[in-house]
C-alpha cells in the first residue's frame, strides 16, 4: 500500500507550499508591498475591490467566452477525427500522426509568431483591412488558432483510447446492421467516455488559462478595446507589470473559484469520480 500512497504524498507536498503562499498573499493587505517592513494583516480588501473592478470582469467575460467556444468544438471535432483515423492505412499513419502532433509540439509562442506573420497586414500589402485590430474578430482568431493547435493531439489521445476497444464489439454491431455513424455512437463513444471527459475538462481549464497566444498576437497589450484581455493576462499585468502581487493573488483565487464551480459541475455530470471497472 505504500506504493499507492507514495505518489499521492509526493504530489501533495510539492504543490502545497506555493499554493499556500499564494493564498496568503491574496488575503493580505498591508502598507506597501510584499517587501514592506509592516506585518501583513488579513483583510478582504483585495476581494472587495475586485468585485467592482471593471477590467477583471471584462477579462472574465473574454476568458469564459473563449473557453466556452473552444470546448464546444474541441472534443467533438477530435472525436470525429479520431474515428476517421481508424480507417487509415498503417503505412501512412506515422506521417498523419506527426502532422497532428506537430501543431501542438511546436509550442505556443511559435504558433503565435507564425500566425502573426500570416495575419499581419505588413505581409499582405494589398489589404487595408487589419483583422487583428478589429475587436469583433479577436475571439474568432483566438478560437481558431487554439483549435488548430489542440484538436490534433486530442484526437491522438482519443485514438489511444479507442484502440483498447474490443473489435468484437464492432463486429457484432456490424452484423446487427449498424452503419458507421451508429457504430460510432453506440460502440465507440461509451467506451472512450472516460478519456473524453478528462480531455474535455482539461481543455476547459487550459482554455481558461489562455495567455501565451494573445500575449504574442497582440504584442503584450490587451488587444483592440481590451478584447484580448484574458484573466491570466490581467493577472500577469497586475503581478509583474505593476508589481501588485497581493491583488494578483486575489485575482487568481477568484478565477480559480469560478473555474472550480465549473469543474465540479462537470465532474459530477460526467461521473468522472467513479472508479470505472468493467
Amino acid at each position: 500500500m505504500l506504493f499507492v500512497f507514495l505518489p499521492v504524498v509526493l504530489f501533495g507536498t510539492v504543490l502545497v507550499y506555493p499554493m499556500l503562499r499564494g493564498t496568503f498573499l491574496a488575503f493580505s493587505s498591508a502598507h506597501g508591498e510584499s517587501f514592506s517592513p509592516n506585518p501583513d494583516r488579513l483583510s478582504l480588501n483585495n476581494f472587495r475591490f475586485l468585485l467592482s473592478d471593471r477590467l477583471f470582469w471584462l477579462a472574465a467575460a473574454n476568458t469564459f467566452g473563449f473557453a466556452l467556444l473552444v470546448s464546444l468544438f474541441q472534443i467533438p471535432l477530435a472525436l470525429i477525427l479520431a474515428f476517421m483515423l481508424r480507417s487509415i492505412r498503417s503505412a501512412v499513419m506515422p506521417f498523419v500522426r506527426i502532422a497532428l502532433l506537430s501543431t501542438h509540439l511546436v509550442g505556443g509562442v511559435f504558433v503565435g509568431l507564425m500566425f502573426l506573420q500570416i495575419v499581419s497586414p505588413s505581409v499582405r500589402s494589398a489589404a487595408s483591412f487589419d483583422v487583428l485590430s478589429d475587436p469583433r474578430f479577436t475571439l474568432l482568431i483566438l478560437c481558431t488558432i487554439t483549435l488548430w493547435t489542440t484538436v490534433g493531439i486530442t484526437a491522438l489521445h482519443l485514438q489511444s483510447a479507442m484502440r483498447s476497444i474490443d473489435p468484437a464489439l464492432y463486429d457484432s454491431a456490424r452484423i446487427d446492421g449498424a452503419s458507421g455513424t451508429r457504430q460510432f455512437w453506440h460502440v465507440t463513444l461509451p467506451a472512450v467516455r472516460g478519456t473524453a471527459c478528462v480531455l474535455w475538462l482539461a481543455g476547459i481549464i487550459a482554455s481558461a488559462q489562455l495567455f501565451e497566444l494573445p500575449f504574442v498576437l497582440y504584442s503584450q497589450t490587451a488587444g483592440p478595446r481590451g478584447s484580448a484581455l484574458t484573466l491570466v493576462m490581467y493577472l500577469f499585468q497586475t503581478g509583474f507589470a505593476s508589481g501588485d502581487l497581493r491583488y494578483a493573488a486575489a485575482i487568481a483565487w477568484v478565477m480559480m473559484l469560478l473555474l472550480l464551480v465549473v469543474s465540479v459541475a462537470f465532474v459530477r455530470v460526467s461521473g468522472l469520480a467513479r472508479t470505472q471497472t468493467n
Binding site: 502598507h31 506597501g32 508591498e33 514592506s36 517592513p37 505593476s242 508589481g243
Partner: peptide, 14 residues
C-alpha cells in the same frame, strides 16, 4: 515603475 510601489515616506528600503 514596478518597484516604485511603497507608499510610506520611510519606505525607501521597500
Amino acid at each position: 515603475g514596478r518597484y516604485f510601489t511603497a507608499q510610506e515616506t520611510d519606505a525607501r528600503s521597500a
